[in-house]
């Protein structure tokens, strides 16, 4: 076993498949799980009518945690942080796009009623999660955190890698909040606009995608100068990263849009039948 590391960081020598513990990742996940358990306990036993929703929420939350764990811990964590830009992008999809949606869906419905009782927090949420603001924040942060000089600076240390991961997670929460949370109420942000919100994110060509795909030479020193993994080359890996970024994001947005449309029709059908 190698030395203990708290978070995934830059490559150290050639990659091998020796398992490596990342204590910071475990503590981070345990802290989120602990906070969730505390929250659920505080909410108390749900009303019989809400028990199914509570069970479902716990399932969504567990899915979010599993996605985070898979993205941050060995082997994906160190491979993405120090060796392959394509896996760095897979991490981004998991930490910054997929997991936040599940974590938000994992909040029991009663949580939102409690949030409404905290006016200051509600005000902050209201400002941050305006769909236009959320869209802007998500895309700016996504662009900045994939900018070569930013990546090369931050991924040079475990602390920088931690900052990137946390930034992705928080930005992802902001992005999904208008879609997954009933508070603050946004009656004008209906299913049609939600689909437009998702579709715009799916089709938008962001600068990192363009330079990752079309650059003649590798743009990230982190991955270009890392010990090579047999069968990969820096430029091909970078182009694969561009594909994962574009297709992966588009696919997640498409699934989310399908869910929005399905729920809309289900609600409409339910309203017509009653």
């Amino acid at each position: 076993m190698r030395e203990l590391r708290w978070w995934c960081g830059p490559a150290s020598g050639a990659w091998d498949w020796t398992w490596q513990p990342y204590v910071g990742v475990w503590l981070f996940l345990l802290a989120i799980i602990g906070a969730y358990i505390l929250l659920v306990r505080r909410l108390g036993r749900p009303e019989p009518a809400e028990r199914r929703a509570r069970r479902r929420a716990v399932g969504w939350f567990a899915t979010g945690i599993i996605l985070l764990w898979g993205a941050l811990d060995w082997p994906l964590g160190p491979l993405g942080a120090g060796y392959l830009a394509s896996l760095h992008m897979v991490q981004f999809l998991l930490v910054g796009v997929a997991a936040p949606a599940f974590l938000l869906l994992g909040l029991p419905p009663e949580t939102f009623r409690r949030i409404e009782r905290a006016p200051r927090f509600m005000k902050l949420l209201d400002d941050l999660t305006q769909p236009i603001a959320a869209f802007f924040i998500f895309n700016v942060v996504m662009t900045v955190t994939h900018w070569p000089s930013v990546v090369d600076t931050l991924m040079a240390t475990a602390a920088g890698s931690f900052v990137v991961d946390i930034t992705w997670l928080l930005t992802g929460l902001v992005f999904w909040w208008p879609l997954c949370s009933p508070v603050p109420a946004r009656p004008r942000f209906g299913p049609m606009l939600q689909v437009v919100y998702l579709a715009l994110n799916a089709i938008l060509i962001r600068p990192p995608f363009a330079f990752l795909l079309f650059s003649r030479y590798p743009v990230y020193a982190t991955y270009e100068l890392a010990a090579p993994i047999p069968g990969t080359d820096a430029l091909g890996d970078q182009q694969l990263a561009a594909g994962i970024m574009k297709i992966g994001t588009a696919w997640i947005m498409a699934v989310a849009a399908a869910v929005v449309i399905y729920q809309y029709h289900r609600r409409k059908g339910f309203a017509q039948s009653t």
Partner: peptide
Amino acid sequence: CPDICPVTMANLGAVMRE
């Protein structure tokens, strides 16, 4: 060599092809 040599030669090879 686990890192420096393959990286150096891979980068030179990639540029020579370009």
